[in-house]
Nucleic acid binder design. Structure first.
Length: 432
DNA sequence: TGTCCACTGGAAGGGAGGGCTT
DNA sequence: AAGCCCTCCCTTCCAGTGGACA
């Protein structure tokens, strides 16, 4: 029972701008049709159909920028295979056209290498897909790699089947942990008696194969596909398709879809971005109890997404990275707009000393600075000053005061904040 | 043209922390 | 309990570097 004064009551009474399931606007949702990816679906299906005949399909490498539908196409095919399997199970007599096929014996295993980015983790995840009993699972740490691999091989080979392993964000795994997983997985077929394994690697980065052992590279890239970015018109179709399912027709203002598509097209045609913009715009409209979604909501959604991204990135930084960023922001605020690694390090050193922490070495700090640069929180360029040496030139690229406040609100570095209490924070924290 | 600065960034390895095996 | 494995975070060492300057 929900009482009259329940805090959710007033929000529950408000009308939702969404018609039904708002997950339709999430990038992870796989619709019944994938607009403008028909060719890619056909190409991949023509490779994967081999699996339905009980043979091993070629390994495939799929390249394309973020939000170009790579994962969606692969998972779309996975769903279609699973649907066929279900229908096959439900009706014992399958259509004549499938009588030569072994649909039941195809298994898909999906691993996102951004989430699971170690040799051990990837092998463990794949192996455990074939285990039902908790006690038979590969533990999350403790076993030697050879044993994990052996267990994985045995589990796959327990019965005759074709296993399609999808390694999403494969470049992340290779850059972080090298190619030993790919080495093992790409030669596993020579060690299997009953089963066959096929690999689908998905990557944002065309160049990651340069880091691969030549044998792995040739085994893995038997087939290659490149997904082009969507243009604004195609993004509009994608959005219109989803919006039709997510909203009543009169909810969306006339230019909302065009604007979301245009903004996302500016960023290399990212469908994920376009969907996020539309969903967040609608959520803002809903929260403010507006009856329709307008272009104003879209512009605000754009700002909100950008701000949330930065805040999320800062919040999840480890303590010392936060201190490095904090040093940069304070000095930047103090008027030093272009800083060097040496300056940042002495400021950081001063901060840690005052707060009673042990500072990390300068070598480690150069890595943290590079990480902050990669996250887009700062700009760091290597520049030579001739006789005055060669170093990084560092500038912050986030709203200074907002992020300083955010870092100061972190409990783990509260002692640093207390150094600045009273008076002008910037002047008090004169660092160099 | 050679020197020199202030680093950069790769390589190797230590050690803590998680857990398994014997 | 001791020995082992893997990952993560970090230190230490050091060759390499771009370009101003003598």
């Amino acid at each position: 029972m929900i009482g009259q004064d329940n805090i959710f009551k007033s929000h529950m009474d408000s009308n939702s701008v969404f018609k039904g399931d708002r997950d339709i606007l999430r990038p992870s949702y796989i619709p019944e049709q994938l607009p403008h990816r028909g060719d890619q679906i056909q190409d991949l299906a023509s490779i994967m159909v081999t699996a339905l005949r009980g043979n091993r399909p070629s390994n495939v490498l799929i390249f394309g920028k973020t939000g170009t539908g790579k994962t969606a196409v692969v998972r779309f095919l996975e769903r279609e295979v699973n649907r066929l399997k279900r229908e096959n199970l439900e009706s014992a007599e399958l259509d004549d056209e499938f009588e030569d096929y072994d649909i039941d014996k195809v298994e898909y295993v999906y691993v996102n290498c951004e989430v699971v980015d170690t040799h051990y983790g990837v092998m463990k995840n794949i192996g455990n897909k074939f285990v039902e009993e908790w006690s038979d699972q590969i533990p999350f740490t403790g076993w030697p790699m050879e044993k994990v691999y052996e267990s994985l091989r045995e589990k796959i080979d327990e019965e005759s089947r074709v296993v399609v392993i999808i390694l999403d964000e494969l470049d992340k795994l290779v850059t972080k942990s090298g190619d030993s997983v790919l080495y093992h997985l790409s030669k596993i077929n020579s060690e299997l008696d009953q089963s066959k394994v096929s690999l689908i690697g998905i990557s944002n980065n065309l160049k990651f194969t340069e880091f691969l052992d030549p044998r792995v590279k040739s085994r893995l890239g038997e087939e290659k596909m490149i997904f082009p970015p969507y243009d604004a018109e195609q993004l509009k179709d994608i959005l219109a398709d989803r919006a039709g399912k997510a909203f009543e027709p009169e909810i969306l203002g006339s230019d909302v879809i065009s604007l979301c598509a245009a903004l996302a097209a500016q960023e290399h045609g990212d469908a994920r971005r376009a969907l996020d913009l539309l969903r967040v715009s609608a959520e803002i409209a809903e929260r403010e109890r507006d009856e329709s979604v307008t272009t104003d909501h879209v512009y605000r959604a754009k700002n909100k997404i950008e701000q949330d991204c930065v805040r999320e990135a800062v919040n999840t930084l480890p303590t010392h990275s936060k201190l490095v960023l904090y040093s940069i922001l304070l000095m930047d605020d103090n008027g030093s707009d272009k800083l060097t690694t040496g300056e940042v390090y002495s400021a950081y050193n001063e901060l840690t000393k005052r707060s009673g922490m042990d500072p990390l070495t300068q070598r480690r700090i150069t890595d943290l600075i590079s990480e902050l640069d990669m996250l887009g929180l700062i700009n760091a360029r290597v520049k030579s000053f001739g006789r005055r040496g060669r170093t990084k030139q560092i500038q912050s690229s986030v709203p200074k005061h907002e992020i300083i406040d955010l870092i100061e609100s972190d409990e783990s570095i509260e002692s640093v904040k207390s150094l600045n209490i009273g008076g002008n924070r910037v002047k008090q924290t004169k660092l160099i």
